[in-house]
Amino acid sequence: MPRRNHPSRGAPRRRRYDGAVPPGRGGHRAGDFRCAGCRLDVPGAAPGTAHRNHCPHCLTSLHVDRRVPGDRAATCRGRMEALGVSVRPDGEWMIVHRCLSCGELGTNRICGDDNALALLRLALRPLRDASVTRRVLLTR
């Protein structure tokens, strides 16, 4: 009896989609994605923001926007690691991301369910190396 479930037969298999943007499907759970850094399955609905664009656990993002947030015009699709925290004049934190593949920078608003420990570690990263702080504050 011939094999009927051979992978080369029948319809071509769809490549599994990993990324911050879902393929063009609407409906239930349309914004869900799997994190490119820690492989966590993240629901698209996020408290405090309309569009989630980074993983709440490891803060990794994906390079899909070019100049305007949400334009999905970048062809890079590289992984973006969190580089630092910036503060807007109204006091809201923004995460600065850098693309590991092309080096471009981007900022994202933090989200209500982001990992607080990861955010605080990121904000305290300049103070991690005591030699720099000592040179900055104690000399001169």
């Binding site: 580089l83 630092g84 925290v85 910036s86 503060v87 923004m94 600065v96 850098r98 900022t107 990263r125 300049p126 991690r128 190396d129 720099v132």
Partner: peptide, 10 residues
């Protein structure tokens, strides 16, 4: 807007 520290670097 921010001071950032890459993994290896100043």
């Amino acid at each position: 807007i921010a001071i950032a520290v890459p993994r290896a670097g100043d």
